[in-house]
Design a protein around this nucleic acid. Structure first.
Lengths: 231, 231
DNA sequence: GGCCCGCTTTTGTCTATACAAATAGATATA
DNA sequence: TATATCTATTTGTATAGACAAAAGCGGGCC
């Protein structure tokens, strides 16, 4: 439809729309459900469907594994494991992960190089009760993210994007100046409610950014047009 | 459907699945279509459905207008217009917007305060041919983002998230140290293929982050929490 | 070989019907 | 007045059946 309804306004019930556009209620329902999933309208049983106020900007970002991303873009990727240690989860890390301390974890630190230049530092915690196989994996050839994706199908993820100033160690590894702005992606993934891994990936701010596009409905929904010129 | 299929593998055709799970093909189709929409599987007519090989991490981020976000979180929001000037689009800005130079634009600079503390600097360009009404708007009471959303329903948006070091002017306005890491969100919105506005919003890195969650398929998320008062 | 043309498989979508689930609003009750 | 209960409305979901659209496959033909 071409903007003929205003935000907050209630739209006709499915049965009326079905009559109006001479199609079945199932068809209307499918179209409206799609709109609802994209946040264009809000629906409640018995109350009806309402045009959402267009204040939320929902952006879909494809956040990929570094090595995959580099390969797709035609760049060479390499990584070096800087630290690899099995230990008990300490209190501060446990709080970060919202897990209880004492669990056996594998702690990794890893430098990623794209076209020979340092591109990211990866600091990762792997819960060994969720991924016991990681105990015997060196990660020398396959980067941790790739290995984990192949091993464990995650079922939920949480992302945080932050800007931080490079501390001395980070600056040295990323070959940038101490204090320079860095972009940090924090990701925690779960499977069946259990934490699989928690990772902080820090990129030099002058060599990295996140991008996302979004088109709200209309273009991608040809369902719409079939309402108009219905038989 | 609990992880019993591997990437690249073909999954049974809809009719077989319907038989296997004792449900109608429509139900299977709906489920598989949902998986396809989330990128979990790939489907081709006559060829079949395949488990997607590359696990792309797709994250949905709700990037809101600052004032709206602050209000929702129960914080006080205020803004001050620092600059407001009508000018012709210069060459460097034109390149940034991928528009041709010379177009008449409104250039705004605006400081956002949350609970009295500086939270963001907004540097915005509004294309006046797309939004002629902006020429007579002072933006003193309604922040530009809110005003634009009410005026122009955007149809496409592009986002970039960057980390940058605060330059002296930015640092002074945000009451932070020069060189401190800042998180910059760049957003360009279009309507019917024409640029409406381009904005860079710079937050102090120690006071701001972006967060996003994602659950792939399976359990749907009933998202009625963000219910808004409908008229 | 290479090209064109149907055949067939598989997904895509619509229809009509049915019943379930949530809940706004009305009604009864304390 | 406030609270509990009922009811009617609206969305949510499932079903079987039908046909459309894309595309892989093979046959026939040059």
């Amino acid at each position: 439809m071409n903007g003929d309804w205003k935000p907050g306004q209630r739209i006709p019930i499915e049965h009326e729309l079905a009559d109006q556009y001479r199609c079945s209620r199932m068809t209307v329902n499918k179209a409206l459900s799609a709109l609802a999933e994209r946040g264009m309208i809000l629906r409640r049983r018995k109350a009806g469907s309402f045009v959402a106020s267009q204040q939320i900007d929902r952006t879909v970002m494809d956040i990929q594994d570094i090595s995959t991303e580099a390969e797709l873009a035609g760049h060479a990727h390499a990584h070096r494991i800087l630290k690899r240690r099995i230990e008990k989860l300490d209190a501060s890390s446990a709080a970060l992960l919202r897990e209880k301390p004492g669990a056996e974890v594998l702690r990794l630190q890893c430098l990623h190089l794209v076209d020979g230049k340092p591109n990211a530092i990866e600091r990762r915690i792997i819960m060994l009760d969720a991924v016991p196989l990681a105990k015997d994996e060196s990660f020398a050839t396959v980067p941790p993210a790739k290995w984990l994706l192949a091993q464990v199908p995650w079922s939920k993820a949480r992302h945080i994007i932050r800007a931080v100033s490079a501390d001395p160690a980070t600056a040295r590894l990323l070959e940038t100046e101490r204090g320079d702005a860095c972009l940090t992606l924090i990701r925690q993934t779960w499977q069946n409610g259990r934490t699989v891994t928690y990772v902080e990936i820090t990129h030099p701010g002058d060599r990295f950014q996140f991008a996302g596009d979004f088109q709200p409905a209309e273009q991608e929904m040809p369902d719409y047009s079939s309402w108009r010129n219905a038989t």
